[in-house]
Computed example of a mutant assay.
Amino acid sequence: MKSRAFAFLLAAGLVMGASPAVAVIGGMASQDVRGARASTLRVETSRGELCSGAVIAPELVLTAAHCLMGGGSVSVVSLDPRFRTRRHAVIAVLPHPTFVPGTTPRTQPGADLAMLRLSAPLPSDLEPVTLGGGLWQGETVTMAGFGLSVEDNKKTARRLRETKLVNAGNYTTQNTVKVAVDIEARGEKPGAGACRGDSGGPVLRGDVRSRDLVGIVSWSSGPLNTRARRICGGFTAITPVSEYRSWISEAAAQLLAMGPNPRPFAQPEPPPPAGYSWWFSR
Rank of each mutant, 00 (worst) to 15 (best):
D198L: 10
R211T: 01
E184G: 13
K189H: 14
V214W: 00
Q174G: 15
G191M: 02
G169Y: 00
N175Y: 11
V179R: 08
A185M: 06
R205N: 07
V181G: 08
N175G: 12
G191A: 06
L213K: 09
L204S: 09
V208S: 15
R209D: 01
N175V: 11
K164E: 13
T172M: 09
R196S: 14
R161T: 06
T172P: 03
S210T: 00
R196M: 13
P202R: 07
E188K: 15
L204N: 08
D182S: 02
G193I: 02
V166R: 09
G197C: 01
G197I: 00
C195A: 10
N170H: 15
S199F: 06
D198R: 09
D212W: 07
D198G: 11
K164N: 11
R205V: 05
K178E: 13
T176R: 08
N167S: 14
G191W: 06
A192R: 02
L165V: 04
D182H: 04
C195L: 06
N167P: 13
A180T: 09
G200N: 04
V214T: 06
I183G: 09
D182Y: 05
V208F: 13
E188A: 12
E162A: 12
E184F: 14
G206V: 04
K189T: 15
D207R: 12
P202Q: 07
Y171L: 13
A168K: 11
T163L: 07
S199C: 04
V208P: 11
D212N: 10
P190T: 08
R205T: 04
P190D: 04
G169H: 02
A194P: 00
K189P: 13
L204F: 10
V181L: 08
N175P: 10
I216F: 01
A192T: 03
G191C: 07
D182E: 00
A168W: 11
G187T: 00
G201T: 04
V181C: 09
G187V: 03
E184A: 14
R211H: 05
L204T: 07
E162Y: 11
T172A: 09
G215Y: 00
V177T: 12
V179K: 07
K178G: 14
V179C: 03
V166W: 06
C195Q: 02
S210A: 02
P190L: 09
G191F: 08
A194V: 01
A192C: 06
K164P: 10
E162L: 12
T163F: 05
R209L: 07
N170I: 14
V203R: 05
R205G: 07
Q174I: 10
C195Y: 09
G215M: 03
N170V: 14
